[in-house]
Design a protein around this nucleic acid. Structure first.
Lengths: 229, 229
DNA sequence: CGTAAAAACTGACAAATATCATATTTGTAA
DNA sequence: TTACAAATATGATATTTGTCAGTTTTTACG
């Protein structure tokens, strides 16, 4: 795969596209490429990050673990997204863990390259700001969903989200395969409730499953459910 | 009250402090001061904002209304905070409504003054970015609380939050007086549940009430509750 | 393959929370 | 000050969701 940031397509999707040629070159020279296996961590809650990760392939969950062992997934980050920006910008330890839910290829960019551009290139800073504004809106939406929708509605919404963001394969199954546990941690519910609702949706003809793979059979029905019909 | 931004103390708490003298002067010339009565809206979900509000006094709730009439309060903004930044930065309609929960004095700053600085003054942009990064972290924390803590714990946390952020009066009551309904919308629960838990906390000696005013009597107990003891 | 461990699933039950109905209190304006 | 609406409060009950205990299925790997 292309190893210079200047030629990396992934960059088009994130704030690095607002960097000048010289900045990109500097970033490219300092970055390192890494392969992360499914289940491995990019970083864990509380750590100090000295750089950001640019996702070239695969998906990572960003989650927070509580004392009782539950962990809530706050976001799924995939190709093109930059992980760890918030921590670097705020100069704080990371508040979330990042764990691969599929095999990943990422670039690690030491923070110096990012920070110096933040101070000197307003276009870049503004671009980062816009991405953060987008993330904040999404986070607000999640808060509202968590409090105003019931588990069934949030489950339905999760499947629609997975279809829209990661697509489906030739057989009509969701391309991103998550364990039932991960799904329950996205939705914020108990594993058993999650499984039960999947069974129910299957019975009603909304979904189909094959092993851990899940496919949407009746998108309209799921949408109606989310809307409260 | 001081009417020039250059001399306004409130500015110290927000991103405007990263503006140059000239920029501030420009902002100051274009701004207008407004008084908002308790219950009135600064703006409503879905509107297009052509500026931001800088809070000089009072408190506003930022919330989202759902079809079923519930509204979830995502944030309480008070003195020094800038409201509407996200929308202006992202060039999107606002995703939340802002309604005064006490009488407010705010300055409205047309977006031109903000946007031009965003494009030219990296210090300012970075400062805005840092505030947004902070808000994002707080939003993530709210998501996790909503899913990992039960209603009683979230109620306890809400009271501690109100004490820490808005203080208490001479008699030991929380300075920011919210209706039971607003409290339930912060916590994400039904009004009746909210009231019941207040009664319970009162019986247990954690809280005292006087009309709609609420005071914390046993902070340690509330903290223990939040921690899960 | 075969086997052990992990993940998925199911049922029965308990706990948490919402809803509905209604009473009481409080604040407000005539 | 009364009178009324709005807010607060409480009880009874329904619904949702979680927990525990166990079975079945899938997956990984020697």
């Amino acid at each position: 795969m292309e190893s210079r940031c200047e030629n990396c397509i992934v960059r088009q999707f994130n704030s690095l596209r607002a960097m000048s040629k010289e900045e990109l070159k500097r970033v490219s020279d300092s970055k390192t490429t890494r392969t992360i296996k499914k289940g491995e961590a990019l970083f864990k809650e509380g750590e100090k990050l000295d750089g950001v990760f640019c996702v070239r392939d695969g998906v990572s969950k960003l989650s927070k673990l509580s004392e009782n062992g539950k962990d809530q997934i706050v976001k799924l980050a995939s190709k093109g997204e930059v992980i760890g920006q918030r921590s670097v910008v705020a100069e704080e330890n990371v508040n979330l863990s990042a764990i691969a839910v599929s095999d990943m290829e990422v670039c690690f960019i030491p923070k110096e390259g990012i920070v110096s551009s933040l101070h000197t290139n307003p276009n870049f800073t503004l671009e980062v700001l816009r991405h953060m504004a987008h993330d904040l809106k999404e986070a607000d939406d999640v808060i509202v969903n968590m409090s105003q929708k019931n588990v069934k509605q949030r489950m339905a919404e999760a499947f629609l989200y997975l279809k829209n963001n990661f697509g489906e394969d030739e057989e009509g199954y969701l391309r991103l395969v998550l364990s039932r546990e991960d799904i329950s941690n996205v939705v914020g519910t108990a594993i058993e409730s999650c499984i039960r609702i999947i069974s129910e949706f299957k019975k009603k003809g909304y979904l189909k499953t094959s092993g851990k793979r899940i496919g949407i059979k009746d998108e309209k029905a799921l949408k109606n459910l989310v809307e409260g019909f």
